[in-house]
Design a protein around this nucleic acid. Structure first.
Lengths: 336, 336
DNA sequence: TTGTAGGCGTTATCAA
DNA sequence: TTGATAACGCCTACAA
C-alpha cells in the first residue's frame, strides 16, 4: 500500500531513525545522507502517517468545534474565522452540529475526546452545567465562542449582548422616541430573549421611562411570528421598534407598511446581526453588528495560546459590537 | 494521565486481549469476567484511544470536506446535510476552507491524506485537473458535491445548472416576454457564468428568438455591479430579467424602481438560489432553488456506500431543482 | 553522524 | 475462554 518510513529507510540504505530525523529536522544529518533520504522519499512517494505520529507525540494538531447549526446565520462566519486562524497554526478542525441538544453535545464531546483532539471550541447561546462538567473532565483546553456563561469558568470570547441592545434602544431614545416597542426572542433564550430584553429595560429606566410589558412581544426570530407581533405593537401606537433579529425587523417593516404606515416616516425600526438582509432590504435596516468572524478568529487564537501554554492576558474577551445606522431610522442611504 | 487498556486489564486482573474483546464484542467472554472488565472500565474512567485503534485497523471513520468558503451562502446547508448523514453512520468531519485556490486545495488534500481520512467530499464550482489528479492519487473514495466536472471521473451529486436557467427563462417566455435580459455571473465562472448563460441561450433559441449579446450583462454576484448591469439593460428596453443570483436580482429590482419603473408591473425578474433574501425582499423574488441540504446528504450517503464497498446504482446523481414563483413575476404573495 | 530498540494504545493471531 | 505477543507507523533516548 502506502510507503512507510521503513520503505524509505530501505530505499535510502539508512535506518528509520535517520529518516525520521530528516523529516523533522530534529538532529543534524550529513548533507549527503539527507539527500539520499529525500530522494528515497520522492521515489517511494512517502507520506508520513499522522496517526502514528500523533499516537507517539500525544498531539493531534486537531481541535473540535461544537456548533449548534452550521446552516443557521452567524455560525458560518464564526467557523470561518476559527478555521482561518487554525490553518495558520497548522490545526485541523472537526465540525460537529448539535442543535444545542444535550445528548448530541455530550456524545460529540465524548467522541472528540476519544479522537484525542488537542482542544475544543464550544459555540451555542448558553452552556449547560452537565456539558461544562464533561468538558472540564476531559482535561483539555476549552474556549467558548459567542456563548453566555454566568460563572465564566472557561475562557470566553463574546460581545456584551445586554449592552448591545441597550445601545440600540438608547439610539432610538436619542431620536426622541418615547414609546418604543420590542420584538424579542423566545423568553427562555438567554441571549435574544433575556439579555436583549434586559438591555431594553435598562435603557428605558435610565431615560426614566416606565417599562410596559405590553410593549414587549415575544418572537421566535422568524418572519411570520414577528409580523404578528408587530401588528400587536401597532395597536399600542409605538413610534419605534427594536427587534432582536434582522429577519424580525424586516417582517415588522412589512407589517407596518401593510398597515398603511411607513418606515422611517412614521415608525423607526432597528434589527440585530447585520445580516445581508439588513442592507438588501428596502428600506435598509439599522442594526447591531456582532463581529462573527472576529469572535471565531480570536477564539482560535486564544486556543493556540492555551495549547502552547503561553501566558494569557485576558481569558474573557468582550469584542466591540457596532450600531450600523441605515434608512429604517431615517439616516438615509448606506454608503457601502 | 488517561487510563489505557492496560490499566483496565490490571484492575480487572485479566489480559489486555480480554479487555479488547469485551470492548469490541469480538469474541465470547464469560459473563463474569466481562462484568469484572466493565467494572474496571467504569472505575478507571477508561476511554478508548481512537488514534491507536485507527492505526491498527487502518480506518479512521473520518472524512475530509473541501469547501470554498463555509461563510458564503449555499455551502453551510450542504455541509449540514453531509454532517447529518455522517453522524448517522458514525463518521466525523474535517472541515477545510480553500477559497477555491489551487494551493490551498492541494495542501489540504495532502494533510487530509496524512491524517488518513477514509474519504473526501470535494465542493466547489469546478474542479481543476491538477486537483483531480491528486485526489485520484491518494486512492481513497472521492465524491464531488455541487461541482461541475466535464469528464465526470468521480462520483458526483449536483443539479443540472443549464437546465435550471433554461427553466427560468422558459417561464419568462411563457409569460409572453420577448425581450429578456440576463445578468450573468463572471464569464469565466463555469456555473453562474457559462452554464446558466447556456441555458438562457437554449431557451431563446427554442423559442426562435435571436440571441443578442447586448442583452446579457456580466455581473459578479454582488449588488453594486448588478445594479449597474440592470441600468444598462433598461437602456435596451428589456421586459424581463433573469439574474444568476438572488442578490443580483434584488439589486436589479432596486435599479428598476430607482429608474421609475415597477416590478412586476413593468418588468419581471427571476433570481437564483432561493436565499432568504428572495422571500424577505419586497417584492418577493421568483427564483430557482438548489437543494443544498440534499446535495450534501446524498453525497455523504454515496460516500458511505463507497466506503462499505456496496454496489452503487448511480455514480452521477442529478437532483431536481425547482422554480419558486413569487411576486417579482406577478404571481402574487408566496403562501409560506 | 548514525543505528538499535523500546514504546505510544490498540487489535488480532496463536497457543494454552 | 483466556493470555502472550506481534504488528500498526512513528519518535527518541541511548549506544556506537
Amino acid at each position: 500500500m502506502n510507503a512507510t518510513i521503513k520503505d524509505v529507510a530501505r530505499e535510502a540504505k539508512v535506518s528509520i531513525a535517520t529518516v525520521s530525523r530528516v523529516l523533522n529536522n530534529s538532529a543534524v544529518v550529513t548533507d549527503e545522507t539527507k539527500q539520499r533520504v529525500l530522494d528515497a522519499i520522492k521515489k517511494t512517494g512517502y507520506k508520513p502517517n499522522a496517526l502514528a505520529r500523533s499516537l507517539k507525540i500525544q498531539k493531534t494538531h486537531t481541535i473540535g468545534l461544537i456548533v449548534p447549526d452550521i446552516s443557521s446565520p452567524f455560525y458560518p462566519e464564526v467557523v470561518r474565522g476559527i478555521e482561518d486562524i487554525a490553518s495558520m497554526y497548522s490545526y485541523n478542525i472537526f465540525l460537529c452540529n448539535t442543535d444545542q441538544k444535550e445528548d448530541k453535545e455530550m456524545n460529540y464531546i465524548e467522541i472528540l475526546s476519544e479522537k484525542q483532539v488537542d482542544g475544543i471550541i464550544y459555540m451555542g447561546d448558553i452552556i449547560r452545567e452537565s456539558v461544562k462538567q464533561q468538558l472540564h473532565d476531559i482535561g483539555i483546553p476549552i474556549v467558548l465562542a459567542g456563548t453566555e456563561d454566568a460563572e465564566s469558568e472557561f475562557p470566553n470570547v463574546n460581545i456584551d449582548n445586554k449592552k448591545a441592545s441597550y445601545d440600540a434602544v438608547k439610539y432610538l431614545l436619542s431620536l426622541g422616541h418615547k414609546k418604543i416597542g420590542m420584538i424579542s426572542g423566545p423568553s427562555d433564550d438567554p441571549i435574544g430573549g433575556i439579555q436583549r430584553t434586559n438591555g431594553y429595560k435598562e435603557a428605558l429606566s435610565e431615560a426614566k421611562i416606565r417599562f410596559k410589558p405590553s410593549l414587549v412581544v415575544e418572537g421566535n426570530f422568524k418572519a411570520r411570528q414577528a409580523y404578528l407581533a408587530m401588528l400587536k405593537l401597532l395597536e399600542n401606537n409605538v413610534d419605534a421598534v427594536f427587534a432582536a433579529s434582522d429577519e424580525m425587523a424586516a417582517a415588522a417593516i412589512n407589517a407596518i407598511f401593510d398597515s398603511g404606515f411607513s418606515v422611517p416616516e412614521d415608525i423607526h425600526v432597528i434589527g440585530f446581526d447585520n445580516t445581508y438582509l439588513s442592507y438588501m432590504f428596502r428600506p435598509t435596516i439599522t442594526t447591531i453588528q456582532r463581529p462573527a468572524y472576529d469572535i471565531g478568529a480570536v477564539s482560535m487564537r486564544l486556543m493556540t495560546k492555551l495549547l502552547a501554554k503561553e501566558p494569557i492576558d485576558d481569558m474573557h474577551v468582550i469584542l466591540p459590537h457596532q450600531l450600523i445606522v441605515r434608512e429604517s431610522t431615517g439616516y438615509g442611504e448606506e454608503k457601502k
